[in-house]
């Protein structure tokens, strides 16, 4: 198996602050592997440690201990991000640039040639259906259009691994469908997708494997169908609720 993303005993602590509060442990020795061609769903309630894991993978925060690697390269090395694409949950880009200029800028960071850049921009603008607005400043875009620019920038380098943080959050049903289609297309092309989401239905539809995180610990990981069987549930949502210990309360 070709492991594209590997996390071993990853521990992240946030300092306690000025009043000698104890350090907050965001991740307790997390272990995770994602292999090539998988669509991997990363699940967990708010505060479970999903975003912290992604922040470590992208080099935004250093791990307290343990290791994380992309394509076998330590995530602290910038080159580890050469073959990845990243779509943040909230998409904010340089408002004074046009979509085309933004993509050209990111292409330069990946070291793409001018010809290759032109080709990729043309293709991606068509994919996200923004050809008509490519030369307009991003500040004039609607929220949905910005999300689509975000998707285009995440794909500018034709990445082998796509990291998506809540990719459908804030999108209308049509937008969600579009994102799902793109994920499916990438899967068909043999790309690896690692994404976090709260949408269980969406995860169940597109993911091969999932990992469920709770209070900084990995509670379950595996193929969706196996987990449903293992937890004697009807669907992934029930598995998730069982893991996080949710007890339904009767409404008086």
């Amino acid at each position: 198996m070709n492991e594209i993303l590997q996390v071993e005993n990853l521990r992240v602590e946030y300092p306690g602050g000025r009043l000698r509060q104890p350090a907050k442990i965001a991740l307790h020795g997390l272990n995770l592997q994602v292999t090539q061609g998988e669509v991997f769903g990363f699940l967990g309630p708010n505060g479970a440690g999903k975003t912290t894991t992604m922040n470590v993978l992208l080099g935004f925060i250093p791990p307290t201990s343990g290791s994380a690697a992309l394509f076998g390269i330590d995530v602290r090395q910038p080159i580890a991000r050469q073959r990845i694409g990243y779509l943040p949950e909230l998409t904010y880009y340089y408002k004074f640039l046009t979509a085309e200029e933004l993509l050209r800028f990111y292409a330069k960071l990946f070291g793409l040639s001018r010809a290759e850049t032109d080709l990729r921009i043309k293709k991606l603008m068509a994919l996200v259906e923004l050809e008509h607005a490519a030369s307009r400043p991003i500040k004039s875009y609607s929220k949905g259009m910005r999300q689509r620019v975000g998707l285009a920038q995440a794909l500018i380098n034709n990445p082998d691994l796509l990291i998506l943080d809540e990719p459908t959050s804030g999108l209308d049903p049509l937008g969600r469908m579009k994102v799902r289609e793109i994920i499916q297309r990438l899967k068909d092309e043999g790309k690896t997708v690692f994404f976090s989401s709260h949408e269980m239905g969406e995860v169940e539809t597109v993911c091969d494997h999932v990992a469920i995180l709770h209070q900084g610990e990995l509670k379950a990981a595996g193929v969706v169908a196996d987990l449903v069987t293992q937890y004697r549930a009807d669907n992934l949502e029930q598995v998730f609720l069982k893991i996080v210990g949710y007890q339904p309360q009767e409404v008086a």
Partner: peptide
């Protein structure tokens, strides 16, 4: 503040660069 630092640092660019 504009959160543009995240897509930027998610590229193969070091903080020194």
């Amino acid at each position: 503040e504009d959160r543009t630092i995240f897509p930027l640092l998610a590229k193969p660019v070091s903080r020194g660069q």
